[in-house]
Design a binder for these strands. Structure first.
Lengths: 107, 107
DNA sequence: TATATAGTTAGATAACTATCTAAATATCTA
DNA sequence: TAGATATTTAGATAGTTATCTAACTATATA
């Protein structure tokens, strides 16, 4: 379930660019918006996708909402990709909670 | 452009399961199909997505088409995720070919 | 308290994706 | 070459996602 959100979040170029910016420094939605041509609601939608995937954390600071990258989830994601590659029987993140698809029980 | 395909390919649970199976051993579309409840055309569609992302390679062997996982692309993908995390200015895979979205030139 | 600023939520729409059945292509074997 | 098997392609449909404008909520400040 988490994988689902994480990879989907990463599967969008705008969201990857947001992560790049946040990796340089935590900043507000407005600061981020200045770098993109999409509307603020669209950006908010992207930030929400990243938040759902737990790839970023949000924290209000006065009028602003400051977004911060969550590196540990990115680490987990990279690890998961490597585990996939190594044919590990039970990659960490593909838990029994991930019931949103039908698959072979031996996986 | 490649990122686009790679993350989108990974953003589907069936496709991730296909990769897990192929990590254990290369096998035909039919062998893979036995593990899933979706129709063969659907599976073919998923295999094509993986192929486009260069995450798998296909090779006909008589009547069968044998699919093989491409571990180097998975390595690159994991590396890209880590580079994102480290705020590297120019992660390998986000090349100038990736023109499918509008973004800040400083990225 | 009224106004301005920052950001999100709602609702509509266009584009994309997963899925299916049916039909086509490729290969093998009798 | 005819029939069987493996897989893909075509075409239709349902569900999901990205985007926009308009409206709403929250905070700050005069």
């Amino acid at each position: 379930m988490q994988n689902q959100h994480r990879f989907k979040a990463l599967a969008d170029p705008t969201r990857r660019d947001i992560l790049k910016l946040l990796a340089q420094r935590s900043q507000s939605a407005g600061d981020l918006a200045a770098h993109f041509e999409v509307s603020k609601p669209s950006l908010s939608h992207h930030l929400n996708a990243l938040k759902q995937a737990d790839l970023v954390r949000a924290q209000r600071q006065g009028q602003n909402i400051i977004y911060t990258i969550n590196t540990s989830v990115l680490e987990d994601t990279a690890r998961f990709v490597l585990d996939l590659m190594n044919g590990d029987e039970n990659p960490q993140m593909e838990t029994s909670h991930d019931k949103d698809h039908k698959f072979d029980p031996t996986l």
